[in-house]
Design a protein around this nucleic acid. Structure first.
Lengths: 193, 193
DNA sequence: CTCTTATCTTTACACTGTCAGGATTATGGG
DNA sequence: CCCATAATCCTGACAGTGTAAAGATAAGAG
């Protein structure tokens, strides 16, 4: 139990955690690598060996964030009464994630800092996209339906994360969710019933 | 024709122009006030008197950008065959602006730096929102329809501005526009025809 | 003309990201 | 076990950034 061993032990994981805290407090635009190092209790140059530069750390955070994003959607889909409800719940999960972790959401979808050519980031993004395609495909939908559901879910989430949609902010939780459900319904392929 | 008069003459406008150039070249995240001052040919502290700090300049740029955003939509709406087509064209204008000026688009919708409590910024944003509400109202739509059209338009625009939607990038201009039209159609209130 | 105000510059400071070099520890071959 | 090697972390330095203070210059009011 030495106070400060020269070697941290698992600095990479500690920096990821500190980086996420920095992200939620200051956002992508206020993100500081030196501040992250301070949070982890190491020197300001320590992160370079694990992530290269600042964008490297942000890339790792984005990849990690993408899987958390998909986890949120998956959790919401549990308990769906049918495939249509499942797709709508995915859209609600999209919004839930954007509201719970707006900075991470912005890092993933609206920042130029992460290296989106990174293998692990591409893999995480493809997992999410493939899942979306699956949701629409089982409903008999095609490319247009994928675009519709994705764009609408993303639009609601992004606008709410940025506090732009005052109409929804004023509503109660029930009213809000009912409204969004109604909007998302229109994006699904026409049911044959 | 003196080379460098101590007083610029219209430094405020020059800084706005230089700021927009800086924005398109480096994006919101790479925006530098000192670099903007260099572009305008003044000292690095000159902008402070006109805009306070960096966020002040970004706030002015956002307000200006918001009106240009609305101008792009208005231009697209010209020539609409009916009110439904008009609403769809507005959505296409939304995307057009996002692709033509992605940095300005991000500044307006996805940045925390501008002061969104600024009077001129609020006014510019309200103008755009009121116009949207008008488009939906003439079609007999209500709050839900406003959310649907806005969110879908915004989702497509934001995802395309960030190069996230590879499905659309691969298509030709005609196919792409046809697809988006089909998606936006679903957001309009049901026609009584 | 003079005083006041607005505009712009210079100087300074704290902070940031990144690089180079040195210190410390873990690891594996002998 | 011992030592060379590599991995890890720290210190110091540099250029660039935002912002504040104080001085220089010009414009305008009286």
């Amino acid at each position: 139990m030495t106070e400060k061993p020269y070697h941290h032990g698992d600095l990479r994981a500690a920096l990821l955690a500190a980086g996420e805290a920095e992200l939620t407090e200051k956002g992508v635009e206020g993100f500081s690598l030196r501040s992250v190092a301070k949070r982890a209790g190491v020197s300001h140059a320590a992160p370079s060996h694990h992530f290269g530069d600042t964008n490297g750390l942000l890339t790792a955070l984005a990849a990690e964030g993408f899987t958390r994003f998909q986890d949120t959607l998956d959790a919401r889909e549990v308990g769906a009464v049918d495939d249509r409800d499942r797709a709508v719940r995915a859209g609600l999960g999209y919004l839930e994630f954007a509201l719970a972790r707006p900075a991470l959401f912005r890092l993933i979808f609206s920042s130029a800092r992460p290296d989106f050519a990174s293998a692990e980031l591409i893999a995480a993004a493809n997992r999410a996209y493939d899942h979306l395609v699956g949701l629409v495909t089982v409903l008999g939908g095609g490319e247009t339906d994928v675009i519709a559901l994705w764009a609408t879910s993303h639009g609601i989430a992004d606008l709410c994360a940025g506090q732009k949609m005052r109409t929804l902010q004023g509503k109660s939780h029930q009213d809000r969710e009912a409204m969004i459900r109604a909007v998302l319904m229109r994006c699904l392929p026409l049911s044959d019933g």
